[in-house]
Amino acid sequence: MISFLIYKTILVIVIFAVSLVVAMYSTYGERKIAAFMQDRIGPNRAGPFGILQPLADGVKMFMKEEIIPDVSNKALFILGPCIAMLTACMTGVVIPWGDAITIGGEKYSLQITDINIGVLYMFGVLSIGVYGVMIGGWASNNKFSLLGAIRASSQMISYEVAMGLSIIALVMMTGTISLKEITEQQAGGNWNMWNVVYQPVGFLIFLICAFAETNRTPFDLPECETELVGGYHTEYSSMKLGFYLFAEYINMFISSAVIATLYFGGYNFPFMHDLGLSENLITILGVVALFAKIFFFIFLYMWVRWTVPRFRYDQLMNLGWKILIPLSIGNIMLTGLITLLRQKYHF
């Protein structure tokens, strides 16, 4: 029991630290990629190639004065960013970061916990994330913040429906909602291919919804600076603002990990069992493969941000309700039909 607790605690701290570091360096990556796409240089003063820029930003956030407006609701004002940050970190628990590592005959899984309701847990935590934005924007008692918060929450809940429906089609194929089992079903060999091959439409819907859930461009209306100053975090300063921005990058990281796990084989890579490597080496290479997939999707987030302009609000709502929801219901029906036909005629 004690060794179980120690091993889990170490794993939790490592994964927590990794998600913080990845989120930190995503801000650096974002600025460098933006600079590259707009033919600029980007941050290059702090350290070689500006590599220490995220640290400098972090220290700056720490040392800034904290302003809580007089008319705001103070307790909720502080609670908002805390919830946003907390929920962003909590989702990483169910993601299988790798297979098991064997140390001294004992197997240590690299997934923090393999609960059999992984996907549901993920959705539950994701929905609580809406509260962080809503509470923060409302408590500021500023009209810009209020509008931003209402926009953000109704956008997030609209796309959550389509997201849930797109996963149902996947669950019908896999027959489980444990993320570990979904990953294992996509293991190489025997022509077991990644789920994206069988669920291209579902993947596309999920990807679009993930963009909307994380409030990234082209769905970044909540913080649309031309209309709403800064959206729900207009009144925030110091580390509270930092938490909101940081939570967005952690959400990007986690949602990339979820996309990679559900649709792109997670830690599996081609020919993983055919090369005659030892179990531990396969696990480590698997972690590397998963992170390569994650970084690709984080790059995709940034690529889209600097390519596609922002939607108008009615276009956003129409896309969510009138296109994505019927499309995902159609996808469910098609998946059901094909699965039944395959069962009957064995192809």
Binding site: F4, T9, L11, I13, F16, V93, I112, T113, N116, I117
Partner: peptide, 18 residues
């Protein structure tokens, strides 16, 4: 697959750390 109560303990750990 059956989950027992111990599987949910790490979620509490993550909650404490975060």
């Amino acid at each position: 697959m059956q989950s027992n109560l111990y599987d949910y303990l790490p979620i509490l750990l993550m909650f404490i750390v975060a």
